[in-house]
């Protein structure tokens, strides 16, 4: 009983610190994370930076579990599709998404949402899955907005692939034949 109360309080404090930093427009986040000053896109990508790829590569097979028919090969394809998706938002909106990736570089943030300090690259899929499960149940708006910000664009990028769309049982659209 008393243990859960202390935990609750600590959670609140952490939410206050990182939550407000990000919500205030992320001015503080870049400096908090140190390594996340705007960097240029990774080779072959329009927007995703090397650090984003390192972060997302181990997360994708967990977030899209069961939806990657070609296994590992699909992880890269999913990241490419995500990168393409990021080409359309306005610059300001895109930066907000990147701030989320930046904050995920922080061990303390990961500890708060996933109970894991370590970088995802050094966690097993099971550990990431457990962390995501914790995160997905947090009763804190900021944590949940961040969770959605991580998962939703990836899901949208993946299931708009016509081949993947069909794995839901959707037969696909009619065929347009132009004169």
């Amino acid at each position: 009983m008393s243990e859960s109360l202390t935990l609750g309080r600590r959670e609140f404090l952490r939410a206050g610190l990182f939550g407000s930093a990000l919500l205030a427009g992320g001015a503080g986040v870049a400096s908090l994370s140190g390594c996340s000053a705007p960097m240029s896109a990774a080779d072959g990508y329009l927007h995703l930076r090397p650090a984003d790829l390192e972060l997302l590569t181990p997360l994708v097979p967990v977030i899209l579990a069961g939806a990657l028919p070609n296994g590992e090969a699909d992880v890269q394809r999913a990241l490419k599709r995500l990168d393409t998706l990021f080409d359309s938002p306005s610059r300001g909106s895109r930066e907000a998404l990147f701030k989320l990736y930046d904050v995920l570089q922080l061990g303390a943030f990961r500890w708060w949402v996933m109970d894991a300090w370590a970088h995802p690259a050094s966690l097993s899929s099971e550990q990431i899955d457990q962390g995501m499960a914790k995160w997905s149940r947090k009763q804190n708006s900021f944590a949940r907005l961040a969770f959605n910000g991580l998962c939703q664009p990836l899901t949208m990028a993946w299931y708009t692939d016509p081949e993947i769309a069909k794995t839901t049982g959707y037969p696909g659209p009619p065929r347009k034949v132009n004169a």
Partner: peptide, 25 residues
Amino acid sequence: THPGLLTSLIGGYGSMARAQAERLP
């Protein structure tokens, strides 16, 4: 209920999200 829009609105992640996506039709 087109798959791109609907799966992202369903939300979630992992095997649970996938199980729900497979009921899309």
